[in-house]
């Protein structure tokens, strides 16, 4: 399988006055297509910083980042925006849906910026909504949905442009455990059936067990990089709706 992410000696250094904080302190790692990776670590260990760089929302201070063979660490702001649009999907802890905008319009948001709203795309939206159990909620507003449903809308939005990589920063952080399991099942279903690569940040071991590889960060460095001990994904995905 080919490498989708290659990080070589990536640093992110924040300068606050005189003090320099290395949020990422020389991270090197490779993630292959179709992997389901969990990133763990204490608060302040650099998980979000890493996700922002992987998600092309930020550029490393130093080091190289290749995404699907493109050296995106050298890309301009505009080029990064295009990468985010075409190759990446985000799922956030706080859902980040547009509040006064309907479910359908939230999901089609990435399409607006890739100028691809055709009949086919609209059909695709309905199909994705159906698969994610959102059928019938098209014209609802996010505040009319439960947390789990909102996160599923966010997932639908993340995958509408068929991205190569799905990034989820604590996607279950705001959900109860039953709903969390629900959302995690959706994610590993996507990983299994569509083969979408997923990188997920969590500090819950239960959640990390859905992944098949766990990377632990400490002080901006990779502390450990191991296969998940009990890959829950293989068991649970069979029972996914």
């Amino acid at each position: 399988m080919q490498d989708i992410i290659i990080l070589e000696e990536v640093y992110k250094i924040y300068t606050m006055g005189e003090v320099e904080v290395a949020a990422l302190n020389g991270v090197s790692l490779t993630i292959r297509k179709g992997e389901f990776v969990a990133i763990m670590g204490a608060s302040g260990s650099g998980k979000s910083t890493l996700m922002n760089i992987l998600g092309c929302l930020d550029s490393p201070t130093k080091g190289r980042y290749c995404l699907e063979g493109l050296e995106v660490s050298r890309f301009s702001k505009n080029e990064l925006a295009e990468i985010r649009n075409k190759k990446l999907g985000f799922v956030f802890q706080s859902f980040n849906l547009l509040s006064r905008t309907t479910v359908v319009e939230n999901i089609e948001l990435p399409l607006i910026y890739s100028k691809r709203i055709s009949k086919r795309e609209v059909d695709n939206i309905y199909q994705i909504m159906q698969t994610l159990g959102l059928g019938g909620f098209q014209t609802h507003y996010p505040n009319q949905l439960s947390g789990g449903q909102q996160q599923r809308v966010a997932i639908a939005r993340a995958i509408i442009n068929n991205p190569a990589l799905l990034l989820a920063d604590e996607p279950t952080g705001n959900l109860d455990s039953a709903t969390s399991a629900d959302v995690m099942n959706v994610l590993c279903d996507l990983n299994h059936k569509i083969g979408i690569t997923i990188v997920l940040v969590t500090h819950e071991t239960d959640i990390a067990r859905y992944a098949r590889r766990v990377i632990v960060l400490k002080d901006g460095k990779v502390l450990s990089d191991t296969p998940s001990t009990i890959p829950l994904s293989q068991i649970s995905c069979e029972t996914t709706p």
Partner: peptide, 16 residues
């Protein structure tokens, strides 16, 4: 601001 952040995350360029 947050809306702008969301739009940028899903691929809105400065120009958009």
């Amino acid at each position: 601001t947050r809306e702008i952040g969301i739009r940028m995350a899903v691929g809105a360029r400065e120009k958009d």
